[in-house]
Amino acid sequence: MLAAKQSFILREVEEGTGAAIGLEEDRSGMQAGLRLWFADLPRTHSPIVTLRPVGLNRFRAMLTFGNFASDTIGQMNRADAEEVQLARALVASIADSAVVRFAGDQSLDTWRIHDGSFSLTAEKRNIVERFEDDALATTCRELVIPILAAMAELYGYDPIEEAASPAGEIEGALSISVVRRRERNPRNRLLALRIHGERCKVCEFDPARQYPGLRSIIEVHHIQPLSSLGEPRAYDPSVDLIPLCPNCHRAAHTKRPLPWSPDELRAMCHD
């Protein structure tokens, strides 16, 4: 039954990770599953997530590496501290709705990919109508996407292509470009929404309730532009990004160069 949903699952995972994803059926287990990997790499060189139904009401996602992924793992081990932090936070977010296990003695807070023996398993239980689109979309968002998004962060997969900055505005344009890249990075969006929920933090608008099936209209907002920081610091979606509805997000940016703060917007919204 899972094989019949390949196109649906592929679309969900590509949108959630910002990466082109390869997919194929896997019939090696008790129930047929799907393998997903980065399409810009041969499957044998990529991290691979296998999604498989288990029992009557569970899904299990298992991360492994292809037999020839040593170069990919080497590149992941060169990830900087900020990328490692985001990758770990993405995997840790899975534990809110599923059971996460690592091979060996690794933990959610300190895991590191040293070689091809690394693996992690996430299992979501008590899923009602697990092959229906809503249940599958939730499973992708809560299991498959965070795992592959974490791997994409470590690998350095950048889904954003920025236009060249205009002459004479290099410093400011660079700061704006970095902020825009982080705002639009689907992996940051994913983590921000996992942390803060999908309700607007100013007006409390909930798109999932108001427009079922259109929850993606919620936007993420960078609270403090990098250009306003006195000193560089690590980027943290848990404090740097918040969900806003399209109206509140546009309202925030009517003030320049610094946007209205969430508190200022709330005061205007509730007056």
Rank of each mutant, 00 (worst) to 15 (best):
R11C: 00
R11K: 14
V13T: 10
G16R: 05
L23N: 09
S28D: 09
G33S: 02
G33D: 04
L41V: 07
P42R: 13
T44K: 11
S46F: 07
G55T: 08
G55F: 06
R58F: 03
A61P: 12
M76V: 04
A92S: 11
I94V: 14
G104N: 07
S107E: 12
L108K: 10
D109Y: 06
D109I: 02
G116P: 04
S117R: 15
K124A: 06
I127P: 06
V128A: 10
E132S: 07
D133E: 14
A137L: 09
E142Q: 14
M151Q: 12
M151P: 03
L154Y: 09
Y155K: 12
D158T: 10
E169S: 11
L174Q: 09
L174D: 06
V178H: 13
N188F: 07
I195M: 07
D206A: 13
Q210A: 12
R215M: 02
S216L: 03
E219V: 02
L226Q: 13
S227A: 14
L229V: 03
G230S: 06
G230N: 10
R233I: 00
I242M: 05
N247C: 02
C248S: 08
R250W: 02
P259F: 05
P262C: 06
M268S: 08
C269N: 14
D271M: 05
